[in-house]
Computed example of a mutant assay.
Amino acid sequence: MTAKMTTTQSQFLMNLSHGLSSQRNLRADNRVPSSSCQITRKNRSWALPVSLKVEKFQLQRGTRRRGSPCLVKNGIGDADGIIIVDHGSRRRESNLMLEEFVKMFKDKTGYPIVEPAHMELAEPSIKDAFRLCVQQGAKRVVVSPFFLFPGRHWHKDIPSLTADAAKEFSGISYLITAPLGLHNLLMDVVNDRIQHCLSHVEGDADECLVCAGTNKCKLYNSS
């Protein structure tokens, strides 16, 4: 069962990485409209960030100053650090799961600097992760919220905590990406969870890695 779940997770990350790579290689004037492109600021006020500014690198793709890291304008280079931040929990098991996801993400993408962070309740904090990225040579830090939708934490809390972390350093730019949101691959993930849990309660599958040992994945009867 563990092998099956690992394959599913790896396939999800591989598809995600391939999709992002394909998008970067498309020229803007040749892009094919998709369902995600139909959600705009005009018809969905929450679809696009309105309060976050993206600082652009001055160096072009592939250019490098002697003795300095290579800065990539439209992708992740060895001068970029990534922070994957979740809410944080008092449950140690939940926090360890983020660390495991970050390891999987780093192995799959090959990005050199990737750190986990918790917004609150647990360590490492966003400030801790930001410092670790800079210590490893990052000149630009990309903060990726491991949240489903753009609520208060994305609009206010994470930007505030990241700005506070950046104050310790000069010459470091940072970006806060959109949360997971309405992404087609999430439909596959949700469906996989539903199908597996149904198989488990019917006795055809073991508990998944998330539910293992919790005795939560069971069928309840209303009184």
Score class of each variant (00 low, 15 high):
Cys211Val: 09
Ile194Phe: 05
Leu96Pro: 03
Thr6Asp: 12
Ala165Met: 06
His155Trp: 11
Ile126Trp: 00
Cys208Ala: 08
Glu115His: 11
Asn184Gln: 12
Arg24Gly: 11
Asp164Gly: 15
Glu93Lys: 05
Leu186Trp: 09
Val141Glu: 00
Ile113Val: 11
Leu59Met: 13
Ala166Met: 05
His183Ala: 04
Pro112Glu: 05
Pro116Arg: 01
Leu20Arg: 06
Leu186Glu: 07
Leu209Tyr: 02
Ser36His: 10
Asp157Ala: 06
Leu13Ile: 14
His155Tyr: 10
Ser144Gly: 14
Ala205Pro: 06
Phe169Pro: 01
Leu16Met: 12
Thr214Trp: 02
Thr177Ile: 10
Arg64Tyr: 04
Thr7Pro: 02
Phe12Leu: 06
Arg152Tyr: 15
Ser35Phe: 05
Asp29Ser: 10
Met187Tyr: 04
Cys37Tyr: 03
Phe12Thr: 10
Leu182Phe: 15
Asp157Arg: 04
Glu168Asp: 14
Leu52Ile: 11
Leu59Val: 15
Thr63Val: 15
Asn95Asp: 13
Ile76Asn: 01
Arg66His: 07
Gln58His: 07
Gly19Met: 11
Ser89Trp: 00
Pro124Tyr: 04
Thr8Phe: 03
Val50Ser: 11
Arg66Met: 14
Ser223Phe: 11
Asp29Gln: 12
Ala117Cys: 10
Glu207Met: 02
Thr40Glu: 03
